[in-house]
Design a binder for these strands. Sequence first.
DNA 1: TTTTTCTATGAAAACGTTTTCATTTTTTCT
DNA 2: AGAAAAAATGAAAACGTTTTCATAGAAAAA
Lengths: 330, 330
Amino acid sequence: MASMNEVAKRAGVSIATVSRVLNNSDSVNEATRLKILKAIKELKYQPSRVAKRLRSKSVSSNLLGVLIPDIQNPFYVDVLRGIEDVAYRNNYAIIMCNYGQDEKKEILYLDILQSEAIDGLIAAPVNENDQRLKNIIKGGLPVVCVDRGLAGIDVDIVWVNNEEGAYSAVSHLVKSGYKRIAYISGLPSIPSSRMRENGYRRALENAGLMDSGLIKYGNSSYASGVELCAELLDMPNPPDAIFTGNNLITLGALETIHKRKKQIPNDVAIVGFDDMFWASSLNPPLTAVRQPAYEIGKRAGELLIQRITDPQRPCIQMTLNAELMIRSSC
Amino acid sequence: MASMNEVAKRAGVSIATVSRVLNNSDSVNEATRLKILKAIKELKYQPSRVAKRLRSKSVSSNLLGVLIPDIQNPFYVDVLRGIEDVAYRNNYAIIMCNYGQDEKKEILYLDILQSEAIDGLIAAPVNENDQRLKNIIKGGLPVVCVDRGLAGIDVDIVWVNNEEGAYSAVSHLVKSGYKRIAYISGLPSIPSSRMRENGYRRALENAGLMDSGLIKYGNSSYASGVELCAELLDMPNPPDAIFTGNNLITLGALETIHKRKKQIPNDVAIVGFDDMFWASSLNPPLTAVRQPAYEIGKRAGELLIQRITDPQRPCIQMTLNAELMIRSSC
DNA sequence: TTTTTCTATGAAAACGTTTTCATTTTTTCT
DNA sequence: AGAAAAAATGAAAACGTTTTCATAGAAAAA
């Protein structure tokens, strides 16, 4: 790879001038500009983003970090797509960090990201007390949270109204006549799990149907959906409907229900948090709370780039709408 | 962030010595080693991966590129997971590049990756003649291909036997008595699309059932599955079974079939290339050719790290097994 | 014409490492 | 004891940029 030095030599100028035309930061004579451009083309010169990043904290080095708990969850894949679209449009590359809801791994990734001198970070933190991330934010790195907030610190965030989304889903079950409505929760340490539980509780308490014995807490995984759904179905008095706390839990629960040859919604109804684009091809077509995942990612990306260019901008909490997609699983 | 200089000062040594204990590359007195370690701890010093990368081409700077055509395709998500697992275990960070099967975007990402001075690259190239990628390989960057090969150049690759996988799937349809078996292909410029078509043809020719009018070519997307399946169903003499070229096409085709209230497999059977972990919860449980996607990623990651440490190692073509998962969609 | 202001450019420092080379001190060998 | 070898360390260059500072010449103002 040709370096700036070689370009400078070939054009018969100093690297300073080359840098100037590259960033057209300063006045340079048109003739020399052309010479330099020519040399650049001839040498197929590509500036080193690494050197640029090392040299100047001030100027953007065009690297973003994305820290997510579970790439296997289609929700985060869509968020990532949204981020990637805006990143690419702005010539940012993305370091993707999938920490698997493992706090140790999250910390290590945060260290790596700092060490890589990223310009900004989009993160769904392991929980709302994530001290390491808070410190990083205090340290001045532009950060936007997605899906999960951070307690006691001002930070940009893009998410949906989880409580409201859960409330509408469970209310819909209530209206449909279900009486024993269970909730398979994700990790309670994750704020969204608790917000969704709150919505679930509110709906059931309004209807006088609340029964804490019908709440199962898991670790947000597919496997947890499989197992906890089995536990529910094994109860002496099993639920007649299940509200699942996320995508993967939903698919796990479906797996169990089908394995047991139960009919949906006759034997047991199900509505999930998180829609999937193939939800209408599931058996049966799944009723689900749709989060605008792609848009969450896109908005987060936009906010981040804004913050990078203007670190003083006041923080924004952007709450998008969650929408109940009614199909035939309840 | 503390730099090596500050550590050196606090420990009362030169940066050279600090570097030496960090990489324990050279003999250093135990007492000074301890002093330095203490200073590092006190300052919470983290070496800059950027500076490291800039300085030494020779030593690994622990950054990998992953270039994939479509992050929305669950197959690539699993491949990515596999890569990420081994990358993380080896302290590599990953720059994720999702080029959306867009050649321009792929080239731009390749430029960026070079400019970021990555240590190695795992790529599913846009097609087998990808000149830019070939040049990069010739330039000496360690590269491993996944899922898609490269013509006329020796390169590590991990994939499955697409021809064989397709053959077994279509043979199964034949054995089940279907006579008019269609194929919805992905982009023909992608080698795997053609390999799968070859397997499809071989199975049908063996059975004397080949009819080129039953092949539809699309762009590998969900939307293409939706549309081309509709075209097939609209034929005066529609197929009684459909073999779909990938994950997304399968889901798109299912969507169309359901929208038209056709019964699977009575009205039309379907078997897809690419399994999904929720395939048994689809309507009906989907028969599909399973690629060991996670393992493909994992193996590719391992091969890449091997190649980074030993660039001379002869190239390996690793062909994993594709397995037909028989469920009830045919 | 003389002074002042621009315009155009280069030299050199800085970013944070690794690595080579040189030097001093210590150890080991005759 | 003297020579040779080994151990421990530092100075400085290098990686490829950006950016500050200085300066020469040209244009504009006096």
